[in-house]
Each structure stands twice: as C-alpha cells, then as structure tokens.
Design a binder for these strands. Structure first.
Lengths: 219, 219
DNA sequence: ATATAAATTTAGACAAAACTAAATAATTGT
DNA sequence: ACAATTATTTAGTTTTGTCTAAATTTATAT
C-alpha cells in the first residue's frame, strides 16, 4: 500500500464515519487538496483492490477491508501523537503534521511496541479515541461544554475548533485535555459559563465553551 | 528532497567515507540494488542540485552541501535505532529496516527532541557514531577485546570466530552484539579477563576475548 | 419539465524514478 | 598498442500519481 493510497483511505474514513452515505468525489478532493479527476483515478485503483465500493457518479464507501486498513492508519497516527506529546514534550497543536508522516511507517510490531510503551492509551491528545489492534473504537459520549448540565462532572477530551489560535488560548489558560471540568453556573444574559477546572474557578465565554468537548463521567 | 534522493546521498556517503576517491556508478547500483542506468539518472539530478560533484565516467563525490545532507540522514537513522533499542525493547539486529523508514521523517525539531529524550547518545546500538547536529562525528576504533585497555568502555560489535560453537557459547553467557563491555582486570597468568557486560561481572578466557570485536566509545 | 448549473468522469499529458537494450568510453591483458 | 572486457551513459519505455481541458452525468430552479 502506497502512502497516497493510505491517505485516500484515511480521508474517505474521516468523511464517511459520521454518515452512512457514500462520500462524494469532490469532498475527497477538497479534503486532500487535490483535483477531482485525480480522486477518480485513485478511487478506481482502490476499487480494483477491493478497498472501496464504487459506482460511477455515486460516490464511495469503504469495504470492510478498506475500513480495517483506514483504522490501522488512524491507530498509528493517534499513537504517534501520544508519543510526541507525552514523551517528546510537543504541545497538542504541533503534532498533527508530524503524525501525518509517522503514520505511514510500516510495521505491525513497531505499533504494538509503541502502544505498550505509551501504556495502552485510549485517547489521543485531542481526545479522539485510538482504535484497538482489532479496529475497535472506544465509544465517545462527548458533548460540547455548553450542553452539559450544571454540576455534572466531566473530563475535557477534545476541541471542535482545532485552530492553532484556539489551542494556544487554551494552553495560556491552562485548560488541557484530561482535566476535570464542572459547570457551576450559567449566565443567562450572554451564555457565558462559570466553571471549575482542575480545582480552579474560571469564567469563560459561550464561544469558548461551545468549542470544548467534554466526556461526561456520570450519567 | 525525496526519499530516493536521500537514499542515494546516504549510499554515496557510506561508499565514499573511507576513501577520498570518487564513488563508481556500479558500486552505487550494487549497494542500492538498482541498475547502473538508474544511478546515472539520479546522479545527474543530484549534480544539478549541487549535492554531488560529477564528471561523466569519473564517478561522484559529495559536495559540502551533499555531505551535510547525508550526515543529517545518518544522524536520524542512528538516533531512531537507539530509540527502538533503548525504549521499545527491539534487539540490535531488528532495527535497521525500521530506521530506514524513520530516517526520512522530516523535522529538525523532532530529531533534536528525540536526541534530548535519548540522553544525547554518541553511538548507535551497533557502535557506530551518531553525527552531531552540526555534522561532527566521534572517532571510532574497533579492536579485539584483548587489545582494549582496562576500564575503557566499548560496545560489542562483532566476532572473529563465527563458528556455531562460539556463538552458542556467547548466547549461553548472554554476550550479545550491542552490549556495553568494560574490561575490569587482566589475569597475567593466563591472559583471561574480568569484564563487566550489561552490568554483569564475568570472567572469560583469553581465547574468548581474542575473538570478540569491541568498538571503543571513549578516547 | 427542461434548461442551467454543479459534480463527475474521460482523455491526454507530464514528472519522478525505475527499467531494458544499445551505444560509447575506459581499462586491462598480452 | 590495441583487441577484448568492463563500466558507464543514452535512448526509449513503464508505472504512479498528478494535472488540464473536454465530455458526460446528476442535481436544481423556475
């Protein structure tokens, strides 16, 4: 499997995992910053290899084989991200591009050793679940902070807006993944929230809150 | 710089570092398991980029720019090897192919962070020196264990007698390539040595010692 | 319902990196 | 010295992944 093939599979996986609908050629082209005609070419190739289901003009879906391959790449990507953040002191907004390269390193054993070395993490630094060796994903019941009820404890597991600017803001205010968050009160006037994070009380705007994903730890 | 270009530079570096003579097209082809005509093609390309000096039919040498690039790749290769052995528990003979992939990951910062994380190692698991960020190489010198001075640390890098009997003996006494060895004392009477290998003290005969190659790692 | 717009595919071209086969230069042995 | 051998380069082809431009299919709007 070439790097390019892997990148297409990953793109199709990311675009298709939410809906059960087929993924459009154009959306793949946009995601990969390439031309639709190039996408068509690659889709044909992947189709011949039984990695995607394809009918002309009808978009693509991953076959079981394709999905399994895509999950393998996602697994590698997210494990390397954990490595970069936990071991090499990168911050969570610096690791994506590096992981894009590292995810293509071919070796089952390496991935498993890395997994073990990192302590079998279940989530990457952005709060996204890491597929198991068998391609199983932990379910995430993550909600936006704005949708969490008062006094319901949860853990900060992700961001909706992953722009460097937003991530930098969070860093500055020591809001980090893994920290426990409770909403203490809501300001009806502007939707801002009084929260407690990591035992520190804060007041954050609705705009911030609506871009933070929380894993609710009690029903 | 493409992976292929990097591989050619590395091959030319390895073939040319011993002699000051130009490297022959055929030897590059042999090293890279490719055809001489392919080598000529690539050499022209590298020559246009001022990475090698090339005159038709006269072989190639690296320019300063090319040498610096080659050393950068060697640095990455050897640092990743240390990572795989020290952190992920691979053995010295399993890491080469993986490092061949990892050496192409592009990121100055990553390499520096890795270097720091590994404690700025000076030698890889095979006893080969790791170039500094500036491309400086520690000198190496490989000797028989019997010719190493007391308390001079080195790495076990090879055997003179490669008979099954000898290798079996080494295995039984957990003397393996890549292990650090220090000679603690010599027995004048029979030339046997008291050594410390991998933090374990041992007493070995002169016959054993005179069949083990050591890479001395300090002046 | 059908004209127009949007999405997708086809056809043909290109660059990178490899190859084969043929031509040419350098080296070697007598 | 020069014929034979070996090393190297050239010319032309292939594969992969991309592109542009044109053709075709599907979706949309009045």
């Amino acid at each position: 499997m070439t790097h390019s093939e892997e990148n297409y599979l990953k793109a199709i996986y990311h675009l298709g995992s939410n809906q059960s609908k087929a993924v459009a050629t154009n959306s793949i082209a946009e995601q990969m910053e390439t031309k639709p005609s190039s996408v068509t070419d690659m889709i044909k190739k992947l189709s011949e290899k039984k990695l995607v289901n394809y009918r002309k003009y009808q978009g693509v879906t991953l076959t079981e084989k394709g999905k399994s391959a895509a999950l393998g790449i996602v697994r590698k990507h997210r494990l390397w991200e954990v490595f970069l953040v936990d071991k090499l002191q990168f911050s969570w907004d610096e690791v994506h591009e590096l992981a894009e390269q590292l995810e293509h390193i071919e070796s089952e054993i390496l991935v498993d050793r890395l997994d073990e070395y990192l302590g079998f993490p279940k989530y990457d630094p952005h709060g996204d679940p890491i597929p198991s060796r068998e391609g199983q994903l932990k379910k995430t019941d993550k909600r936006l902070l704005t949708e969490v009820s008062l006094h319901m404890p949860g853990i900060c597991v992700g961001v909706k807006d992953s722009s460097a600017a937003f991530l930098k803001f969070l860093d500055k205010n020591s809001i980090a993944l893994g920290h426990e968050i409770v909403v203490l009160d809501k300001e009806e006037f502007d939707g801002s929230l009084y929260i407690e994070i990591d035992k520190k009380k804060m007041h954050i705007s609705n705009q911030i809150a609506s871009n933070l994903y929380i894993q609710v730890t009690e029903e």
